[in-house]
Simulated scan of single mutants.
Amino acid sequence: MFDLERYRIILFDQRGCGRSTPHASDLATDISLNTTEHLLRDMEQLRAQLGVERWLSFGGSWGSALSVACAERHPERVSEMLPAFWLMGRAEVDWSAWEDAVLSLEPHGKPAPFSDRASDDLLAFARICAHYAANNGWLEDGALLRNAGRLAGIPAVIMHGRLDLSCPYDAAWQFAQAWPNAELVAFDDAGHKGSPAMHDHVRSTVARFSVL
């Protein structure tokens, strides 16, 4: 979704998943050191190590909550944001317990979007998700919303599917009201996994941000 001539893309696998080690699929891996605070420190260390002064933050689902938490911690390090919203609140954690079923019913969904992963990835996914959900992401309920004022001055476009049954739309709407400089765009044909229209809007938005 990004023009590689204009953007330097930085992707990172969070603790315990992807190519990060130790991997959470190994039951000997201690995931007590895998918390939101640890991830925020990891992101800041990564930014500093790569010599990035400010970056555009782009995340969806849990990634949007993490990117907002990072931006509220270090607003001076963020140039723009493109979150697809989730606040990691208690109500949302309870609601998301059925997402493997409901995501398969979305207009652009597919059967078992999570449970058909490779066995190691599925085990790591289950351990990490349960670990974070049981602890409410180590975020005080409503804290991200209450701290939205810290993001004043950061241009943002919040994109959310009205048919998203995993991350309810009201969280995106509430945050858009509290976040100065944020624009909320809802897509009638999109659920949690997005839609062609949403992806097109992401591309046009990042192109617009690249000339700011």
Rank of each mutant, 00 (worst) to 15 (best):
92 E>N: 06
164 D>A: 06
192 H>D: 03
126 A>S: 12
86 W>L: 11
168 P>G: 02
188 D>N: 11
195 S>L: 05
16 G>Q: 04
157 V>K: 15
208 R>A: 14
201 H>F: 14
20 S>E: 02
3 D>T: 11
40 L>E: 10
126 A>V: 08
210 S>A: 15
12 F>A: 03
160 H>L: 04
71 A>M: 13
174 Q>R: 14
167 C>K: 04
191 G>N: 00
154 I>G: 11
135 N>I: 01
48 A>N: 02
161 G>T: 02
102 V>D: 10
10 I>E: 08
45 Q>D: 15
159 M>C: 05
5 E>P: 00
107 P>Q: 01
142 G>P: 08
189 D>A: 07
138 W>G: 10
17 C>M: 03
70 C>D: 09
167 C>I: 02
90 R>A: 06
20 S>M: 03
21 T>E: 14
195 S>P: 08
120 D>K: 14
22 P>V: 10
202 V>K: 06
42 D>S: 09
173 W>V: 11
19 R>C: 01
157 V>I: 11
98 W>Q: 14
10 I>Y: 07
122 L>Q: 15
78 V>S: 10
112 A>G: 05
189 D>S: 09
61 S>V: 03
206 V>W: 09
155 P>A: 13
35 T>W: 10
191 G>K: 00
40 L>D: 09
183 E>G: 09
159 M>I: 02
27 L>V: 12
141 D>E: 07
56 L>H: 14
45 Q>K: 14
37 E>A: 12
167 C>L: 04
182 A>M: 09
168 P>K: 02
84 A>L: 05
171 A>Q: 12
99 E>W: 13
147 N>D: 12
69 A>M: 00
38 H>D: 15
196 P>W: 02
208 R>Y: 02
146 R>C: 10
166 S>W: 06
89 G>N: 13
28 A>L: 13
173 W>S: 08
105 L>V: 04
51 G>T: 04
40 L>M: 09
68 V>N: 07
164 D>H: 05
131 H>A: 10
87 L>I: 03
66 L>W: 01
50 L>W: 00
62 W>I: 00
5 E>V: 01
15 R>K: 10
195 S>I: 06
110 K>D: 02
1 M>F: 15
212 L>R: 08
147 N>M: 04
181 N>I: 04
30 D>K: 11
92 E>S: 13
13 D>T: 10
107 P>C: 00
154 I>E: 13
10 I>V: 15
83 P>Y: 06
82 L>A: 11
41 R>W: 07
149 G>E: 08
40 L>A: 13
176 A>C: 08
77 R>C: 12
97 A>H: 12
64 S>C: 08
200 D>W: 05
13 D>W: 07
63 G>A: 06
206 V>M: 13
14 Q>H: 05
160 H>K: 02
209 F>N: 11
80 E>W: 13
64 S>P: 09
109 G>W: 03
4 L>H: 11
212 L>V: 03
15 R>Q: 12
168 P>R: 06
94 D>G: 01
4 L>G: 14
69 A>R: 00
103 L>I: 12
48 A>S: 08
